[in-house]
Design a protein around this nucleic acid. Sequence first.
DNA 1: GATGAATGAGTGTTCATTCAT
DNA 2: CATGAATGAACACTCATTCAT
Lengths: 206, 206, 206, 206
Amino acid sequence: MFESLNIDTEKETRIINAATKVFAENGYQRASTNAIVKEAGISKGILFHYFKSKKELYLSLYEYLSDMFAEKIYERLDLEERDIFEIIRKVSLIKFEMFSTYPDLINFLNRAFHEEAPEVKDGIEKIKASLTDSSFIKLFSNIDATKFREGIDVEKAIQIIYWTFEGFANQQQVRVRTMSVADIDKEEILAEINSYTELLKKSFYK
Amino acid sequence: MFESLNIDTEKETRIINAATKVFAENGYQRASTNAIVKEAGISKGILFHYFKSKKELYLSLYEYLSDMFAEKIYERLDLEERDIFEIIRKVSLIKFEMFSTYPDLINFLNRAFHEEAPEVKDGIEKIKASLTDSSFIKLFSNIDATKFREGIDVEKAIQIIYWTFEGFANQQQVRVRTMSVADIDKEEILAEINSYTELLKKSFYK
Amino acid sequence: MFESLNIDTEKETRIINAATKVFAENGYQRASTNAIVKEAGISKGILFHYFKSKKELYLSLYEYLSDMFAEKIYERLDLEERDIFEIIRKVSLIKFEMFSTYPDLINFLNRAFHEEAPEVKDGIEKIKASLTDSSFIKLFSNIDATKFREGIDVEKAIQIIYWTFEGFANQQQVRVRTMSVADIDKEEILAEINSYTELLKKSFYK
Amino acid sequence: MFESLNIDTEKETRIINAATKVFAENGYQRASTNAIVKEAGISKGILFHYFKSKKELYLSLYEYLSDMFAEKIYERLDLEERDIFEIIRKVSLIKFEMFSTYPDLINFLNRAFHEEAPEVKDGIEKIKASLTDSSFIKLFSNIDATKFREGIDVEKAIQIIYWTFEGFANQQQVRVRTMSVADIDKEEILAEINSYTELLKKSFYK
DNA sequence: GATGAATGAGTGTTCATTCAT
DNA sequence: CATGAATGAACACTCATTCAT
């Protein structure tokens, strides 16, 4: 299941949505298969008919949602873009919009990123690696190095930029946790992204 | 217990060490009180005599170890130091040495930092806040802003510096996870810290 | 199905072979219908289309394989033979050869002989009885009693002979359990059969 | 638990009796821990507090009951006795009486002897081996070989005698399975034992 | 203070059987 | 004929917490 995106039955969709939500809210360990089947309105048996274990469910879901997420990013991203800040701004924007539409998806992915449960940690890492290899890093490997000031270690500068926006995203997540989706002030956040962008440009660029 | 640092009996020390270790290795949820009493060589009853619940044990431990950690940091830190990079370098160094001596402590604290279990999340946040208020932020609030180039938003620059070293620390942790304490190449890591420092100084400082 | 030996389709053969193997390896209870359909490469539905329950599958299989086994024995046995030891030696030999060719069949039958699962125990007993009545005991009922020494209770002597070779067979089975079919030293086993035969003849025969 | 026969609390006794009964009636696999705790009138938790798994419960029980059984046999057996038939008669008699008093014990032990469940099979074999080594075979290793007729392979003769009474016991068990303890005709069975004894003596002894 | 026996709801998972397609 | 999705009760086992001793 999931392998070839043939999620076309109503029941499959319900499982995916339910599992995404329950895992997003509870993390791997605390999420109970009982809660998932209840949320999905299905029987215990059918869950284990589709996925042979909770672990497999989680990992399949992770792979499916990562793929889907990457796809969405790519289909809206200008792959010719070589300015790192433009790339990050665009990705942030897309993430935002996806968060409004599919908050569970984004929450699931964010949580999975730091998941510590030993049953799935290695599996997540493997999927992450294969994804990153095949596609993600590409975004950053194509960066236009000539824009950076002389004497700057571009690779490390990119790392700093990445960590900055990762840190910012985490900070927002914590803030947002208690709000409803509607209450998030998108304009304010974008403004903050801009000021970090300005600061980093001023410091790293020619 | 713990409130006034009167950890003077041998049994208390054993509980602390055991709980630190078990929580460090498993996180809040997966850590079982059974594992803790077994590791400590004490009875179930006495654990719940000292701490009325697992939650209280965790939170007391967190507070105690945070305090202890902050104290160690402070007693070795030059409080007059106003250069943020010097502060960070020194803190990194102290953390390093503490990790060699008390790896469980550092692992516990790192893990607690990202702990998601709802039973303790708010409690952690509260303790963190009180600690930060009373002491930690002080380190960063005293920073010498005059060293930064004109037109740079110093507060945001400090955030970037913080996120950079946080990101770097996380990266190291992932790398280190599979190694034994002995195999860590301290010199190499310090060299990397230095090059990030150089890069950021060159970019942000006058 | 099976009643009239019309096992002529390829699919039926696959069910038989798969079920024989899975029951032989796991016994009635632990054998799962899932494992059987997987091994046979068929769907769940078709299994329960042919056999209305796991119990009926097992019992039909038992009857079919018992019959088949008895048939094989009979077609190669000299029915005029009235010396019990000759009969047993011949039966042992045939069993041996069948075990080399159809190890699952023999394993299934051996295991069924001691099967304790209440769902099928009575059914097995009934089939065993009808088989024994109609054919098996005949082998032993025709024994030449005049070969036994005076004063010997022939019926009981036959029982002893039977138990001896049954015990020997069980002993071999335990030994063989860990070996591959190829590693079994047929000559050695036949030599042992011979020495038990000699001993019993010397003791019971004139 | 069990290690040093300190089964002195009322609850422990209830667990032992309940587990013995449920395992005796159902074998390892079909016996459910639910049935055991219900029969014993205890909670689920306490069973797994004493025994860390169903497997450990079964094996501890097997060891305990085997030991107990062997002890009972030994304390009533004349160890100087070197006539194999006398030994077997006496053992049969003791078994009988034990069966009247503790039918579950004997049923458990008989069933365990042929238990096929892979979780416990090896464990049973190991315990059996250690028991046999230390004590049981002794009974048969001390047999007076001079009583056997010239030219008889005494070791094989003993095997035959053993298999005969084993087969007889199995036969009785099948017969008895449907009866209540009270309905068993002890005299008749002892008479049959005697006639097998007579036959074997006449055949093997001088 | 100190022990560890005791609880019972909760966990992930299995399974023979049915039935709409 | 044939499929495999669907069921739900049952399984072994875990766990934080309490309490009689």
